[in-house]
C-alpha cells in the first residue's frame, strides 16, 4: 500500500517535471509581456517533431536529435518573436490572446500540412526500465527529472544574477521605468520568448521516447495542462511554477490510480477553480503583482 503511494508520487514528480519545464517558459513570457502565450504547447510539439525528423529522416542519434529539435524551435521562435511577440509590448491584452492563438493554429496546421495528420512513431531514447525502490521506471524518466532540476537551478541563478535575468525582472515590474533607465524592452521580450520556447522544445524532446507518438495536435493538450500550473504558481513566478507543477503531477497521478483515469484531466481545472477562489494571485506569491 505505502509502496504504491510512493510509486505514484514518483510518477507524479516525473510528470510534474515535464509540466514544469514547459510551464516555466510560459510564466516567464507572461512576466515580461503580461500575455498568456497560447501557442506555448506548439513549441513543445515543434521540438518533438524536429527530433523525430532528425532520427527518421536524417538518421541521427537521439542525443543529436535533442540538439536539432531545440535548435529548430529556436529558429522558429526567433522569427515569431521578431514578427509578433516584440510588437506586443504595451499592447492590450486581447491582442496577445488573438496573436498567440493565431500562431498556435498556423504552427499546428503547417506541421500537419507538411508531415500529415497521422501519429508518428518516435523511436529514440532510453526506454529500458531500471528498478529503483522496488519498482521499475524507464531510464528516460530519470533523465527528465534530472534535467528539470538542472533547468530550475539554472533559471534561479540566471534570474537572480545575470544581466538578462535582472532585466527580465525589471521589465516584469515596470515597463515605463525600464525604458527610462535604458533597458531595451523589446529585446528582453524577444530573448525571454526564445528561452521559453527552447525550454518547451527541450521538454518535448525529452518526453517523446516515453510518449512514443508524435502528432501535430499534441501541443494543445500541453498548453491546457500548463495554464492551471502557471496560475497556481503565480503568474511570472519561476519557483512557484516548479512547486505547482509538482503538486499537479502528483495529484493527477493519485487521482488516476485511486479514482480513475478518466478523471485525470479534471484535476488541473478543479485545482485552478479552487486557487482562483481562494488565492487568485497564486499559491506561492504573497500578494498580487499585476
Amino acid at each position: 500500500m505505502l509502496s504504491t503511494v510512493l510509486e505514484q508520487v514518483v510518477n507524479g514528480i516525473v510528470t510534474g517535471s515535464v509540466y514544469a519545464i514547459v510551464a516555466v517558459g510560459m510564466t516567464m513570457i507572461f512576466g515580461v509581456l503580461r500575455a498568456i502565450n497560447f501557442a506555448h504547447g506548439e513549441y513543445y510539439m515543434l521540438g518533438t517533431f524536429g527530433a523525430w525528423f532528425a532520427i527518421d529522416y536524417l538518421g541521427l542519434s537521439y542525443e543529436a536529435s535533442i540538439v536539432v529539435g531545440v535548435l529548430a524551435t529556436i529558429v522558429v521562435a526567433y522569427v515569431v518573436g521578431q514578427l509578433v511577440m516584440r510588437r506586443m509590448v504595451g499592447a492590450p491584452a486581447e491582442s496577445g490572446v488573438l496573436a498567440t492563438l493565431g500562431i498556435a493554429l498556423i504552427l499546428q496546421n503547417t506541421v500537419i500540412f507538411v508531415f500529415g495528420g497521422g501519429y508518428k512513431f518516435f523511436s529514440g531514447g532510453y526506454i529500458e526500465p531500471i528498478s529503483i525502490f522496488g519498482f521499475s521506471l524507464a531510464q528516460q524518466r530519470i533523465l527528465i527529472l534530472v534535467v528539470c532540476l538542472v533547468v530550475f537551478v539554472g533559471l534561479e541563478l540566471m534570474v537572480t544574477y545575470s544581466r538578462l535575468g535582472m532585466a527580465m525582472r525589471a521589465v516584469s515590474q515596470n515597463v515605463e521605468c525600464c525604458e527610462v533607465v535604458g533597458i531595451d524592452v523589446p529585446q528582453v521580450v524577444l530573448r525571454t520568448f526564445i528561452l521559453g520556447a527552447a525550454l518547451a522544445a527541450l521538454s518535448g524532446v525529452l518526453t517523446a521516447p516515453v510518449n512514443v507518438s508524435v502528432y501535430g495536435g499534441m501541443g494543445e493538450l500541453i498548453t491546457f495542462k500548463t495554464l492551471p500550473i502557471i496560475i497556481m504558481g503565480g503568474l511570472g513566478n519561476v519557483r512557484g511554477t516548479f512547486f505547482a507543477a509538482m503538486i499537479l503531477g502528483i495529484a493527477e497521478s493519485l487521482v488516476a490510480t485511486y479514482v480513475g483515469l478518466q478523471f485525470r484531466d479534471t484535476v488541473g481545472f478543479a485545482t485552478l477553480i479552487l486557487v482562483l477562489m481562494w488565492r487568485p494571485h497564486g499559491l506561492f506569491s504573497t500578494q498580487a503583482r499585476f
Binding site: T4, N11, N211, V212, S213, L254, T257, G260, Q262
Partner: peptide, 21 residues
C-alpha cells in the same frame, strides 16, 4: 478495475501499476 482514457492520453503508468498490483 475499470478505467477509461481520454483520446490523446499518453501516461498510463498509474493505471498499469494498479493493474499490476
Amino acid at each position: 478495475s475499470e478505467d477509461y482514457y481520454k483520446e490523446g492520453e499518453v501516461d498510463f503508468r498509474s493505471v498499469l501499476a494498479k493493474i499490476r498490483d
